[in-house]
């Protein structure tokens, strides 16, 4: 698959992660009463947790990069920091180009609106203008394969129809950078194949894909570089096959 990808003459970086650390403060109280009662002793009710520590790397345009690690190693936090959804405690992320995040398909769907209304709303959330959405509308519906249900409220959709429509919207927003969080295992086998074909097409177009997955096979097939995280720190950054070994090693201790 790598062979079909075009070589880009000295590709520019599209994402730069500089010394990013993220601390979560775990509080055990939430209501006003509890806060007033515990005022002054509030430090006893806090706990620090570092989800990311001094993470540094750069992603050049056109690469497909996999973020790997055990559960709770900070992959999803890093992906959210890349997407600008959470702010790092220290350090910063720089990026350029249009970004689309497939963090959770259909996050912007409202169950009481019809498929058509949700397409327009979700496309606007991902950054398409109304005219662009109108232009891609038929293609989105075709890709999702649900033309007969497009004017039904999405609360009546099956879960497969739901994610198919959401995926179809996300791949039509023409992103330069695509963030993917374990969502490719959706739909039936033919649809999964379709998703993979779309990803391959994205790679041929020179789009950058950042990919979080536990499926080593998928990572091996798609990525040309992996970053392995353990307890919020980068323990490996490099070629895919060694990366998967590093991932297995990181489970050990």
């Amino acid at each position: 698959m790598t062979a079909t990808r075009p070589a880009i003459q000295d590709p520019p970086a599209v994402i730069r992660v500089n010394d990013v650390s993220k601390r979560f403060v775990i509080r055990k109280e939430k209501s006003l009463k509890e806060r007033i009662v515990n005022f002054g002793r509030s430090n006893l009710h806090k706990e620090d947790f570092w989800a990311l520590r001094d993470v540094n790397f750069e992603i050049p345009a056109g690469t497909t990069i996999g973020l790997l690690g055990a559960n709770g190693s900070g992959k999803s936090t890093l992906l959210k920091a890349l997407g600008g959804i959470i702010q790092p405690t220290s350090g910063y992320v720089e990026r350029r180009g249009r970004l689309a995040a497939l963090l959770e398909l259909g996050a912007g769907f409202h169950p009481d609106l019809t498929g058509r209304e949700n397409v327009f709303l979700n496309a606007a959330i991902l950054g398409l203008s109304r005219q662009q959405t109108e232009q891609y509308f038929d293609s989105i519906v075709d890709f999702a394969e649900i033309p007969e249900f497009i004017d039904t409220q999405v609360k009546f959709y099956s879960s497969g129809m739901y994610v198919r429509l959401a995926f179809a919207i996300a791949v039509h927003v023409d992103p330069d950078i695509l963030l993917v969080d374990e969502v490719l295992a959706v739909g039936d086998e033919p649809f999964q194949k379709k998703c993979m074909d779309k990803i391959a097409e994205f790679q041929r177009d020179g789009r950058t894909i950042v990919f979080v997955s536990h499926a080593a096979k998928q990572v091996e097939r798609l990525c040309d570089r992996v970053v392995v995280l353990k307890h919020g720190e980068v323990v490996y950054d490099g070629a895919t096959d060694d990366g998967i070994k590093a991932l297995r090693a990181s489970f050990g201790s």
């Binding site: 880009i8 520019p12 056109g62 702010q87 720089e94 990026r95 350029r96 023409d174 330069d176 020179g206």
Partner: peptide
């Protein structure tokens, strides 16, 4: 919709960096 990969890279190279920090 699809753009030649090299064209895309060149366009991206010309874009300014956007930094995501709070303050």
């Amino acid at each position: 919709m699809s753009l030649d990969a090299q064209q895309r890279a060149d366009r991206l190279a010309a874009l300014p960096w956007e930094r995501s920090t709070t303050a």
